[in-house]
């Protein structure tokens, strides 16, 4: 079931110099989301290996919606950007690589030093499904 939800029209920009609690600039656009917030956040939590409690999930879902409502303002630029290539980098650099020359590695001690659990020079982790 899909619920339509109107987010309150608070238009104040967060920053007031008397320092009252910040609120995002939230437009009055309505946002559509699945009423079963848990599925969406649950799915994201799985993909991102995050531990999220029920309560956290509700809050995160709400905040996700607030953020989406803001960032959807990019729709306004669609006409301007339709002919543009996406930029995932802005250096303009190309063809950066290095020669195939080896250098010394960390010692086994250095490599293992920060690990919580090791065994015979190997990192140790709770059993993983034999999925190789």
């Amino acid at each position: 079931m899909v619920k339509k939800h109107e987010i309150s029209k608070s238009k104040d920009l967060i920053i007031s110099s008397t320092g009252t609690t910040a609120r995002s600039e939230i437009s009055s656009a309505s946002v559509t989301y699945f009423s079963d917030d848990k599925t969406r956040i649950k799915h994201i939590a799985e993909l991102a290996a995050l531990d999220i409690t029920q309560d956290e999930g509700v809050k995160l879902s709400q905040q996700l919606d607030e953020t989406l409502a803001y960032i959807n303002n990019l729709k306004d630029l669609d006409n301007l950007v339709s002919q543009l290539e996406p930029s995932s980098q802005i250096t303009g650099l190309e063809n950066i690589s290095r020669e195939d020359e080896p250098s010394p590695s960390l010692s086994q001690d250095e490599a293992l030093k920060n690990a919580k659990a090791t065994q015979n020079g190997l990192f140790k982790v709770k059993g993983v499904l034999n999925n190789d």
Binding site: I71, L77, L84, E85, P86, I90
Partner: peptide, 8 residues
């Protein structure tokens, strides 16, 4: 979309 707007 954001990456395109970045170009802009």
């Amino acid at each position: 979309r954001a990456a395109k707007a970045r170009s802009l």
